[in-house]
């Protein structure tokens, strides 16, 4: 037994020495299989920047400089083609880049610093896209992965299949669309359209002039404010709908669930049975009216509640 134990301890000592060597070799190999990207060019303040392909991570940052800087690492055998629109007299009006990896597997990590007011279009199969500080226009398209946008782009379009979409800010014009990915919007919009098939949609803050939220089976939570004269339309097939409103905001509610229930604690008025005794419906006005809230669902359950004090602090 002592001999065995000595042998085992020798083996583990060798293992302790070899393991870091192996790890170092692998890391070095992986690092050597990468190459760096560094592209810089002066552009107009409203340039159009397009980037697509197999990047796994893309960070887009709006800055106050009048140039675009694209940096990052990509696989050594990847193709990163494209270029800037040439201009003989001054800064470029746009750029277009495409990343292609031999395997097609997303693996590049890129960061783009761009003038805040530019228009950015990005598309990838599966990627994590993180954006901050853009005041121009954003059009982001992924299948999987995630999109996170912070700031107040003038217009924002995000389309995803199963990637989650999170927006912290108040784009003037907002279109967020997923198939199964969840959507979170923490901020208002003059014109918002949020749609999903079976993801959840959560609006946690913000003032809306016009908001339309549509889902098939995904649940919808709305905790924002509808501006005076504005409108909020929500419809789902079977997704539950949970609306929290500030009772002092004026709004007329027209709410119906064809085969589900309605729970109203926003006012004292209870919901009544719907057509032919099926489902429930309710209509009422709070705060003297002014905005219109129209909610429809086939068989989802609806809850109408006042905002909590914690939610009100956001406004």
């Amino acid at each position: 037994m002592p001999r065995e134990s000595t042998s085992m301890s020798r083996h583990s000592s060798i293992g302790r020495v070899l393991l870091p060597v192996v790890v170092l070799c692998c890391t070095a190999g992986a690092l050597s299989a990468q190459r760096t990207v560094e592209i810089r060019r002066a552009v107009t303040p409203t340039a159009s920047i397009r980037i697509s392909g197999a990047f796994a991570e893309l960070r887009i940052r709006g800055w106050s400089k009048d140039s675009v800087a694209i940096t990052g690492t990509i696989p050594a055998d990847a193709r990163f083609d494209g270029g800037f629109v040439s201009s003989a007299t001054g800064p470029s009006s746009g750029a277009k880049y495409y990343l292609e990896t031999p395997s097609g597997v997303p693996s590049g990590k890129l960061e783009m610093n761009v003038p805040a007011g530019v228009r950015v279009w990005a598309k990838s199969g599966s990627a994590s896209i993180d954006v901050e500080g853009i005041t121009g226009s954003l059009d982001l398209n992924i299948i999987g992965g995630s999109v996170h946008v912070a700031g107040n782009p003038h217009d924002l379009t995000v389309e995803s299949m199963d990637g989650a979409v999170t927006v912290e800010g108040s784009p003037a014009w907002t279109r967020l669309k997923t198939a199964t990915g969840d959507i979170v919007l923490a901020g208002g919009s003059d014109d918002a359209g949020l749609t999903t098939v079976s993801g959840t949609i959560r609006v946690t803050a913000g003032t809306f002039e016009r908001a339309r939220i549509e889902s098939v089976t995904g649940a919808v939570e709305f905790g924002g404010v509808v501006a005076h004269g504005g409108s909020l339309d929500i419809d789902t097939h079977s997704g539950a709908i949970d609306v929290r409103m500030w009772p002092k905001v004026g709004a007329e509610f027209d709410v119906a669930s064809v085969a589900g229930t309605i729970e109203n604690t926003l006012t004292n008025r209870p919901a009544v049975a719907g057509r032919e005794g099926r489902g429930q419906e309710i209509g009422f006005t709070i705060g003297g009216g002014g905005a219109r809230v129209y909610i429809r669902t086939f068989k989802g359950n609806i809850r109408l509640q006042p905002m909590t004090k914690a939610m009100l602090k956001v406004f």
Partner: peptide
């Protein structure tokens, strides 16, 4: 994988259409 995702969502929508 993308086809599978699209088809799964189409199936969800078709069921909703059928019910409606």
């Amino acid at each position: 994988a993308t086809v599978a995702k699209v088809e799964a969502s189409l199936r969800v929508i078709d069921l909703a259409i059928d019910e409606a």
